[in-house]
Design a protein around this nucleic acid. Structure first.
Lengths: 196, 196, 196, 196
DNA sequence: AATGAATGAGAGTTCATTCAT
DNA sequence: GATGAATGAACTCTCATTCAT
């Protein structure tokens, strides 16, 4: 792929990421994507053979970026607890930085087996990265624990979507909170006298 | 509303729940809903003024059912830990029993402020129910803790979607796992010698 | 089918016959068909599920009309020679009367197996009708003879397409000519002294 | 035109003949023609200014080849009956040898006056070649007779298209059959006692 | 109240043609 | 001369919604 073609490929992915992310699959028109990318409608089809394939490509690039950045950050630390903190911060901050694009995962085309398969693969990969950290800590049931941790983080990130006032500060705070809660449990902050 | 009208209203909601749930908003046709409900296409519009409003009604009924059943179950127990266990079990089992309808929350119409507002309301309400339990236990930061717990449960339920082999047994197991993890934290099951 | 629906069905077929006939399959737009039929674009699809199916229906109706009229005319005569004359006249006049629609057979959608199969069926049926007449006359190789006769007629009709000045008179004359030529052969009118 | 250019011109015509012949005008893409010819899409337009003109050129070359071969074959014989036999054999064999390309004449672009005019011209030329033979035999109405003969041959060739099992043998047999039928008429093989 | 035939805006996609390189 | 990336007009078909019956 020539440099110009590569540039256009990227421009389309960027435009599609922007629009699919903020409007979802169904409410984004290919003509809008083209317009956003500064090219003609037909040109999009030179790079992606259908709307679904474009969505797949956008999703794949986003997920891969998420994983790569995470793995890179994990290389820099050693203690499992530290790693868990890094995971939490990465999860929260990644979405905080992309808060305009929260519909990418939400409003995907249904009934597209390839996409469903890819999403399952991504979830598995993410989970395994967490599992690996937990195994270093000697956890039993590491998969369920990993799922739980990811779930916590995912929910704590939700308010980014719903609260316009959500700040970067909030994101950091929640990341720390999640790591602490996950490690020590609610009992750490619950009043033991109340029956725990 | 007469009994006959009420019956039709319900039939439409049931059909729409079935179809929106399994196919998502965009891939469900109003004509299919009508057919499923055993009535004519135009009749749907006598009860719901648009596809979006129908979706809203379906969502609302489902969320209300979820909350009502939860509150009813919570009435029967007293200890906060027990209540947390009930919440976990309710969350997992509710979705297990409705595993054919997992797309209801996933593939909703975008850019519908009313729906977004309602979903936020539901999340708030669910969260407050958990908060109330946590406050009984004297938790600090009960809202973040509630969100975290719900997030754990939500992720642990995901495999219902992706693993056809997921059993009722699995659902129960995960509910117990989540409650324990939430209360005692990962440290309970992590090898303390590994640096925790 | 209600009378109104039946009327619309016919109106669409008529419009499609007109347009496919004069412009061919590819150069006829569904929107034009709708406009010609005095209805909305979407309505066409309530009666025919695709452009190809509409074309099939038009073709089928035309071919069936051709065959039915032919069989009806053949009932009225007994001698094989008379029947051959009737066939010739029917062939020429049928197309003369529909001279605006000559592209129906010519410019059909390619690669549509169903249409190809139907056309083969029609040709077979037409041929068999001629074969039947020839067998009454005791012909050997009746199928090749039938094909030949039909071919003669079909070519003699061509000028209807290309000569704007072609008259009804011409059509009758050619029908008679064809029948005579087919029965007696060229030798009847060729100068025997020239080597025949 | 340089030799290289001439070669490319021919390569395009060959590719177009192949594709128009097997797929028809509308279902053949210029990009396919280019690919088949082993050149770039844009290059086709250096040699033919539009798809229609390319189709015209293909048609013209095919028709001219048909006529030239025919005239050449006719030079070798003297008796009109022999010439008629040669014509029949040429017609059948020409299409038999090109049976993959039967859609060239069938699925031409509509509403192209130039093409329509050319086809009329070709038919006229072919007819006149037959007329010439018939006049040597002293025929009256030689034009209608020529048309009839050509029509017979054209129809007898049709099965090449529809019967995959059609053999070269069949083609020869039909050629002989057509010549005999044309000269002696059906009466030669019909049972005279049946009323002829 | 109930129907379902009719509507028509609007979507995704194709492909002949152009033109800067 | 040769290329092939880019264009954008034009197509078929869908489906939420309406309204005369």
């Amino acid at each position: 792929m020539s440099s110009a073609a590569n540039h256009k490929h990227t421009a389309i992915l960027d435009a599609a990421y922007e629009l699919f992310g903020s409007g979802g699959f169904y409410e984004t028109k290919m003509s809008e994507v083209a317009e956003h990318a500064g090219i003609a409608k037909g040109t999009v089809y030179l790079y992606f053979k259908s709307k679904e394939e474009l969505f797949m490509a956008v999703t794949r690039r986003d997920c891969e970026g998420f994983m790569q950045q995470l793995e890179h950050k994990l290389e820099d630390c050693t203690a499992p607890t530290e790693k868990l903190a890094v995971i939490a911060e990465h999860h929260l901050m990644y979405y905080y930085e992309r808060k305009q694009h929260t519909k990418l995962f939400f409003r995907a085309p249904n009934n597209n087996p390839e996409l469903v398969a890819y999403m399952a693969l991504f979830m598995e990969e993410y989970m395994q990265a967490v599992v690996k950290v937990l195994l270093e800590g000697g956890a039993s049931e590491p998969e369920l624990m990993a799922q739980s941790y990811i779930g916590m983080l995912d929910r704590l990130k939700m308010d980014i979507l719903f609260q316009p006032s959500f700040t970067e500060e909030d994101a950091y705070k929640r990341a720390k909170f999640a790591a602490a809660l996950f490690i020590h449990g609610a009992i750490g902050s619950l009043n033991a006298e109340n029956g725990y």
